[in-house]
Design a protein around this nucleic acid. Sequence first.
DNA 1: TTGCTCGATTGGAACGATCAAATGTACAGG
DNA 2: CCTGTACATTTGATCGTTCCAATCGAGCAA
Lengths: 352, 352
Amino acid sequence: MATDSTPHANRKVTLADIAAGCDVSRATVSLVLRGSPLVNKLTRARVEEELRRQGYVYNRAAANLRRRTSSSIALVLNDLANPFFAEFATGVDEALGGSGYVTLLGSTSESIAREQAVLGSLLEHDPAGIILSPAEGSAASRVLAAVGLHTPLLLFNRELAGEAPSSAPWDRLMLDNQRGARLATEHLISLGQRRIAFFGGHASSSSCQQRHAGYVEAMQAAGLPIEAHWRIECAPNRVDAAAQCGALFFDAPAPTAAVCYNDAVALGLMLGLYQRGVRPGRDFAVTGFDDIAESALSAPPLTTLASKPRARGRQAAELLLQRLRDPQATPQRTIAPVQLVVRASSCPPPSA
Amino acid sequence: MATDSTPHANRKVTLADIAAGCDVSRATVSLVLRGSPLVNKLTRARVEEELRRQGYVYNRAAANLRRRTSSSIALVLNDLANPFFAEFATGVDEALGGSGYVTLLGSTSESIAREQAVLGSLLEHDPAGIILSPAEGSAASRVLAAVGLHTPLLLFNRELAGEAPSSAPWDRLMLDNQRGARLATEHLISLGQRRIAFFGGHASSSSCQQRHAGYVEAMQAAGLPIEAHWRIECAPNRVDAAAQCGALFFDAPAPTAAVCYNDAVALGLMLGLYQRGVRPGRDFAVTGFDDIAESALSAPPLTTLASKPRARGRQAAELLLQRLRDPQATPQRTIAPVQLVVRASSCPPPSA
DNA sequence: TTGCTCGATTGGAACGATCAAATGTACAGG
DNA sequence: CCTGTACATTTGATCGTTCCAATCGAGCAA
């Protein structure tokens, strides 16, 4: 049978066990753990030896309870399976880990009901703050009801529906959607393009609206007309984009270029073009948004807007940590710049 | 100034506040929260009203402390940015959420040092169990030292290096790498291919070894020779695969088909082939492994092995929950089947 | 001697929940 | 009138940690 001081597989080792093991009080052991200068060198050594011997592991939950602190951040994403958000999550986790926080993950799969459930469940674990990329159509009032005013929340990527501006003083980190789409459109115009469509995305989503606004802005600034049938909606994925490709050519005048909602849509559109015998990058110009990994490697490589999702993740974490340090500061709205990356998918119109 | 019973933004609402608010004891409130049949209908209604009024949120950490339970699972991944693992994580979170657990996320970016740090940090939050997809080269002894024997661990996707079989009774969930590669190879052989290469991956990784073994098995069973220069190593990503493409054709006899380590490698190889004027799916057959989203949409669509990462995530969660229910059961090694998905990238050899 | 500071340590009450055992009613039957 | 029992509620201890105030011996000045 095991002696009383042998590392025991059954029960978890606590401060009290260590204290008993080397004849000091729990308080002293606690001081050692936190590296207090108060404790004598000799006893510190004894305690540390005992910690090692018994295989002690710190119970942060108990400490957090006593200190009324928290060491976790909730990360709630509308679509973790999307590489963009996966990269984002990686960035968040990197930055949080570096600051001693742990990431509580929640994935909502674009379901508002799941978002409510996930927020509720994560809140019970008392996160110090929340990073939320809302599901499509998620309403400010519901989020407020679930989260309350006590836990700081950083909104990423999308606005909430029906926001009452003053009620919920949330920080925001958004991409510069409008400027990005404007840059892409201006780039196409500078290549001589005049008949440019805006392709893909749900018109109801805030990011799609912003990108479309940037497109309109550039077209108008250049004095170019916009035809109604140059705006095609589709789900933001490759499959649906490929299927909707034909809609671009139903009516005259047909466009010779398209600014796409995002890279997934652009890649799908290029696939659809190929299937109709139209060669993207030669007969028809295409731009995307996001600069996901595949875009550099597609045929032709895709002209797009780099949003650096991992850096955005780190930035989101930083912004939230900032807020935790200074809860009273006025809410921040941060717009992350995007960079135009020119590749072979954008070309002059065939006539030129 | 606020009355004493007004929902207060400052301090968090506790059981005691509710109890005081409707003149019952904390214990009664606790019983209400947990839906105990013991409590009277009338008082239950009063308490529930008060809970709502004060905006109470349950503190699971405190409950877990008292009950010596845990309601979180740690998910530690070697590469969350990889769509395969992002899908896996989504599946895990889905299944855990359904069982009332919360996911503690840790991403190691293939760094053994970060893996150690992440495991240490997550353990302090006392997870009920751990799902670990280890970083490349991660050693069993180090993982054991970090995790101990107290917390159940499920190993996913990779074996640990230098495992002493008896010491750590961990459950495992692995893909059927060997059988998958064998199926792909047999498929190519059945199309008439005879000179088949094995392309990509690090020969040191266990999954690469298993896939290679499946390839060898099929070749030998068919009585086909294997040339030494038909085995090309490269990092498991598109860029390196494209760069290594030429190595296939340095020496005669050149292969007319390749079984690739995974889809990323296969897509990269197809790109490299195009650049040399070789048309994959016509002049040269290619197969992948994983069935990531792009594979169905590449040109040509990729023949590959579907591993259903999201389903694997759910399965991993299920296996771990199973283990929590029955800690004494003997360790399970589960091999998840993979399915051959035949698409246009696999073809007969040009001569046939 | 007393008084005082200084460094090192400690006991006991928290944190917010749960649990086991005790308490208080009300009502039945003997 | 007493006992038993079913229900409804409470009391006080407890989980593993931290905080606060108290303690204690030693050194040193007056």
